[in-house]
Computed example of a mutant assay.
Amino acid sequence: MESRVSPDVPRETQTVSVPPARVETYREWATSGTGLTAAARVTDSDGRIALVKNGWSDGWIAPGGAVELDETPAEAARREVYEETGLEATIDDPILVVDQIYVAESEPDVRFRAEFVLFDASADGPIPDADQLGVDRDEIAAARWFEALPEDLHDDDLFRPYL
Rank of each mutant, 00 (worst) to 15 (best):
D44M: 12
S122H: 13
F112M: 10
L153N: 05
I49T: 14
I95H: 00
Y102C: 04
V135E: 11
S57R: 10
L87I: 00
R78V: 03
E83V: 04
V81H: 03
L51H: 02
A39Y: 06
E151D: 11
V67P: 00
G125K: 04
A40E: 06
V81D: 01
G125D: 07
L153W: 06
G55N: 13
R113W: 02
V117N: 08
Q100C: 03
A130I: 04
R79H: 13
A142V: 13
R41V: 15
W56N: 04
T90L: 14
E68Q: 04
D46W: 07
E139N: 03
W145M: 04
V103K: 03
F116K: 04
V110D: 05
E147W: 02
L69S: 15
G64N: 05
F119D: 14
I95S: 01
F112T: 02
D109L: 09
A141S: 13
T90I: 09
L87W: 02
D120K: 11
R79G: 09
I49P: 04
E68S: 04
I91N: 07
N54D: 15
D99G: 07
E147D: 15
G134R: 00
D92E: 14
D136I: 12
F146D: 10
A121W: 04
R48K: 12
L51E: 04
T90W: 15
D46T: 02
G59H: 07
G59K: 06
A142I: 12
P126S: 12
R144F: 12
I140S: 13
W56M: 07
W60M: 12
G59V: 00
G125S: 06
N54G: 11
L51V: 00
A77D: 06
T72H: 05
T85W: 07
Y102L: 07
G65I: 06
D124N: 09
L51M: 05
E151W: 06
A38K: 03
P150I: 08
V98M: 05
F112A: 09
D58M: 14
P63Y: 03
A123I: 06
Q100M: 07
A148N: 10
I95K: 01
L118W: 07
P73C: 10
E75T: 01
I127F: 15
D44G: 09
D124K: 03
P126W: 00
D58S: 15
D70P: 01
V52M: 06
A143W: 14
R144M: 14
G55K: 15
D70H: 10
P63M: 09
A74P: 01
R41E: 02
L87T: 00
Q132T: 04
V52H: 12
V110C: 05
A114Q: 13
A40H: 04
A74N: 10
E83D: 02
R79Q: 12
R137M: 08
A148H: 11
L96R: 00
R78M: 03
R144A: 10
I49D: 02
A66I: 15
A66M: 07
D44Y: 12
W60F: 12
L149R: 08
E151G: 13
P73V: 05
E115N: 08
E71V: 15
V67G: 01
G65P: 10
E147K: 14
F112Q: 09
G86K: 10
D129I: 03
I95C: 00
E105K: 09
D120R: 12
A77W: 08
S122V: 01
D70A: 15
D129Y: 08
K53N: 06
P128V: 07
V42D: 03
I101G: 01
E71R: 01
D93M: 13
Q100D: 13
L69N: 10
